[in-house]
Amino acid sequence: MSKVQILSYAGCGTCKKALKWLGDHGVDVAVRPIVDEPPTADELARWIPASGLSVRRWLNTSGQSYRALGKARVDAASDEEITRWLTEDGKLVKRPVLVKGDKVLVGFREGDYAALFG
């Protein structure tokens, strides 16, 4: 099986669950620390459409970075502005982000991982 990339945050419980699932299923993973290396604009231009989610669904709405921006500011922001924020602050990105070829999963749902690697 080819190596997949996962953008992860060491302090994130959901990321830990995803990494455990991947390890338990023998998936070779390259871990990229999302806070130190947030997604680039070029990556997001490919990954957002590949995920099937709107850019707003990429926001980690339970994190401090989101709360610092405030819901009203996010609601008023353009998709381009949100994309720029995601490139500037890895903690603003919903995680983990798993990239396997042209497939991108945001967050961890066991069924989605099983479907991708099954």
Rank of each mutant, 00 (worst) to 15 (best):
Ala115Pro: 00
Val31Tyr: 05
Leu69Ser: 06
Leu19Gln: 13
Leu105Ile: 14
Arg109Pro: 08
Arg109Trp: 06
Ala30Gly: 06
Leu53Ala: 09
Lys94Ser: 11
Glu88Tyr: 05
Phe117Ser: 09
Ile34Asn: 02
Ser8Asn: 07
Leu59Trp: 08
Gly11Val: 09
Val31Cys: 10
Val74Trp: 01
Tyr113Gln: 02
Arg56Asp: 00
Thr87Cys: 11
Thr14Gly: 05
Glu37Phe: 12
Leu59Asp: 04
Ala77Thr: 00
Gly90Thr: 04
Arg57Cys: 01
Ile48Gln: 09
Ser62Gly: 15
Leu98Met: 08
Leu19Tyr: 05
Lys91His: 11
Ser51Asn: 09
Leu86Ala: 01
Ala18Phe: 06
Pro49Gly: 13
Gln64Pro: 01
Asp79Arg: 02
Gly13Ile: 07
Arg46His: 10
Pro39Tyr: 11
Gly52Glu: 10
Ala10Gly: 09
Tyr9Phe: 10
Ser54Asp: 10
Trp21Pro: 15
Ala115Val: 12
Ala18Met: 08
Tyr66Ser: 03
Gln64Ile: 02
Ala30Gln: 15
Arg109Ala: 14
Lys17Gln: 13
Pro39Gln: 15
Glu88Leu: 13
Arg32Ser: 13
Thr40Leu: 13
Glu110His: 07
Thr14Ser: 06
Glu88Lys: 11
Ala18Glu: 05
Lys91Phe: 12
Trp85Ile: 04
Leu44Ser: 03
Glu43Asn: 06
Arg84Asp: 00
Arg73Val: 12
Ile34Glu: 02
Arg73Cys: 05
Val27Pro: 01
Leu98Cys: 00
Ala18Tyr: 04
Ala77Arg: 04
